[in-house]
Amino acid sequence: MRKFLAKNAPGYVFLSPWLIGFLFLALGPILVSLYLSFTKYDMIGDPRWVGLSQYEYMFTKDKRFWKSLQVTFTYVILAVPARLAFALMIAMVLDKGIRAIGIYRALYYLPSILGASIAIAILWRQIFNIDGVVNAFLSMFGIQGPNWIANPDTSLYTLVVLAMWQFGSPMLIFLAGLRGISPELYEAAEIDAASKPRQFFAITLPLLAPVIFFNIILQTIEAFKTFSSAFIISNGDGSPADSLLFFTIYLFNEAFKFFRMGYASALAWTLLVIIGAFTALSFFASKYWVHYENEKD
């Protein structure tokens, strides 16, 4: 018993703030939402148990559910790699010592600070309008662009561009990761006359792997849960013609606009299973490409 305590005590002492928060603040609401997913609940009266029928409706009758999955998956597949590649590239440029680097960093982080404010909604609409900046630029090459946000075929891409443009947070994390790589490693590589791409694949990539892994996981989870930016640009309901019907937008409307919190909870747990499966897969795959310093010996 004493041995057990000695082995576990420090771990649980350090874990205790999280554990207390999880057990007393987070777990209850999570379990309640699971329970609600088996009920009809309009938030004014009491929930009414309906078993699996919410899930059944979702998978067999609800066309908008499938539409929202399609929109969300398309977005995840396009936005996550683009944003990460962009963030890594800029982080590597900004990592090396050049003058006034702090200013660039602040500038590049700026769009992310603006987040999903009302200002961004207005700005984005103006930029991608029929006579906006983007089309003015395209017309220099003789291309007449559409009204990007109003066209259901193109509206999703404006959100992908927005995601790329707000690459600040993964960039900053990459930057912090790059800082952890000792410059001596690169110097040694220079002595060995290793080319820049080779240095990237032999040093940067393996040593940055834990951080890359973190960014992939988190960015993907965030992309699956995209809400604020889609909400402000789609007028809150996925317009035009459901082309911006992200999963969480659908869920939010079902819950707070149409008084179907039970159904919204079922949607949430379906999303949770999807994201969970993806994350578990990534963790499993990471054994083959992510190695940590503290596992080496």
């Binding site: 207005i122 559409p146 109003a150």
Partner: peptide, 14 residues
């Protein structure tokens, strides 16, 4: 048509 779709959900000032 596109103009009108672009005005969906616009605020009074727009």
């Amino acid at each position: 048509a596109e103009h009108s779709v672009g005005k969906l959900g616009s605020k009074m000032a727009e």
